[in-house]
Design a binder for these strands. Structure first.
Length: 422
RNA sequence: AGAGGAGUGGCAGAGUGGUCGAAUGCGGCGGUCUUGAAAACCGUUGUACCGCAAGGUACCGGGGGUUCGAAUCCCUCCUCCUCUGCCA
């Protein structure tokens, strides 16, 4: 959520950059917001003033009770009851204007960083890097055929037990999953990330803190009667560890890594183009999260991207790095790089990581601050990225490493799998 | 799950209806002293909002209520501890 103070200060720039993001009527939204905030200030001032009068009067009653001035007490009580009525009324006004402001604020997405390419179409995304794809003579099978052939993932079983989008990993398929998770966790820990295993159910407040609620509430599975949600990503519990905290600058950067299963309803995004591991309701992911002081966040974004690239290189997968344009940016992000691995069986690129800087958008919601050297407190910048999401990586691994009768396991994974081919 | 107890400032801990935003101790910060450090002593030390400022308002787990007045009384929810039960 954007900070109202910043909006007031930089309204022209903000209107300009949000209009690049497809936000309709942004100018009138912003002006409406500022007008409402002006109103709020006036009401707040009146409200405080009345409360002050009321408090004084109550104290006076106390003093008069001690001295037994019955007549005066009654007069003061009468006066107080009048003030109280007005306080009640003004309190209503204050609450309603605050709610109005809040309701507007949560509909406004983050402001894209100035270096984000402008545009609303996929073509406006900037391909920063792309591996040269290796050409092979033999026809390559898509992963949904390979997993059947080698009996490592069973989609039918998943349908039976749960429903579509919940695959069952079997034998070397299951081991490969476990190997990838351990490999990703170990690599992150080597880079100084603290390993965390978070709850995979979160409450409403945490969902709000990272921006899933209310914007993407419909994409999360809700536990009936408990008011809890299955996490769509470990970003939610991990970032919310720090909700309502003031971090000392000395304790930053916060670098956390977590493996978790992720659950997404993916409502509306299902179609014939979605097959196999391309899109699932449940999948595994290792997520890295950093919380840093504002001036460092873009350096950190780069570091995180470099780290993700190093994983892809270690796995020897053809990949590309894409800088998302303003129109493609997630609601809460100020800048995002996507990483895609090549699927030769499908002849298309599959997103396997998304690394974002949210600047203060999440920290303002979750109330995460940093106390600087000079003791001033500022909203922290939060960042996160997949490092990595498993299913598409697994798809790409088996498709890229297939030969006629086997699939070679990437070298770095062999110590983790205990076998070198499937 | 049942019974009982408890949730107060960074921590510890007082306060059970009236200048309580809250004693005290520890910690933190600033200073005096010291060649330096420690000790001692003095001062300072929460967050948000309104206000140019002076100052004001709100917050004692969350929400609601009683009262002229609530950290203190009542209701409700959450969390923690103890005992009983159940269980991976």
């Amino acid at each position: 959520m954007l900070e109202i103070k910043k909006i007031r200060k930089n309204k022209v720039e903000i209107i300009l950059s949000l209009s690049k993001r497809n936000v309709k009527n942004i100018k009138s939204i912003i002006y409406n917001l500022i007008e409402s905030d002006d109103k709020r200030k006036k009401i707040k001032s009146r409200y405080d003033n009345l409360n002050s009068q009321y408090n004084l009067s109550s104290k006076e009653i106390g003093i008069n009770i001690k001295h037994g001035n019955t007549a005066k007490i009654e007069a003061l009580k009468l006066n107080n009851s009048k003030i109280k009525e007005e306080i009640k009324k003004i309190n209503k006004d204050l609450k309603s204007i605050e709610k109005k402001i809040f309701d507007i604020l949560i509909t406004i997405p983050n402001i894209p960083n100035e270096n984000v390419p402008e545009g609303n179409k996929e073509e406006n995304n900037e391909i920063v890097f792309q591996s040269k794809s290796s050409k092979t003579e033999i026809p390559l099978l898509p992963h949904w055929d390979l997993v059947k052939k080698y009996k490592i993932i069973d989609f039918e079983l998943g349908n039976k037990i749960t429903g579509a989008g919940f695959p069952v990993y079997i034998n070397k398929g299951a081991k490969l999953q476990r190997a990838l998770i351990n490999f990703f966790l170990d690599e992150a820990v080597k880079k100084g990330y603290l390993e965390i295993q978070p709850p995979i159910l979160i409450n409403e407040n945490s969902g709000f803190g990272t921006g899933q609620i209310p914007d993407k509430e419909g994409q999360m599975y809700k536990v009936e009667n408990e008011n809890l949600f299955l996490i769509p990503t470990a970003e939610v519990p991990i970032t919310n560890i720090y909700q309502n905290t003031i971090l000392d600058i000395k304790d930053t950067p916060i670098k956390n890594v977590a493996y978790s299963p992720c659950f997404r309803k993916e409502a509306g995004s299902w179609g014939s183009h979605v097959r196999g591991l391309n899109r699932l309701h449940q999948f595994d992911k290792v997520e890295i999260v950093q919380i840093v002081s504002p001036e460092k966040s873009y350096t950190v974004l780069n570091d995180m991207c470099n780290y993700v690239e190093s994983l892809l290189e270690n796995l020897k997968l053809p990949y590309r790095k894409i800088k998302l344009c303003s129109g493609d940016l997630g609601f809460t992000s100020a800048m995002t790089y996507d990483f895609e691995v090549f699927s030769p069986g499908q002849k298309k690129w599959l997103e396997c990581s998304s690394v974002s800087n949210f600047e203060t958008y999440q920290s303002n919601r979750a109330n995460i601050k940093i106390k600087l050297e000079n003791k001033s407190k500022v909203l922290a910048h939060t960042l996160n990225g997949s490092a990595l999401a498993l299913p598409r990586i697994l798809a790409s691994i088996i498709e890229n490493n297939q030969s006629k009768n086997k699939i070679k396991v990437p070298k770095v994974l062999i110590p983790y799998t205990g076998f070198d081919e499937i």
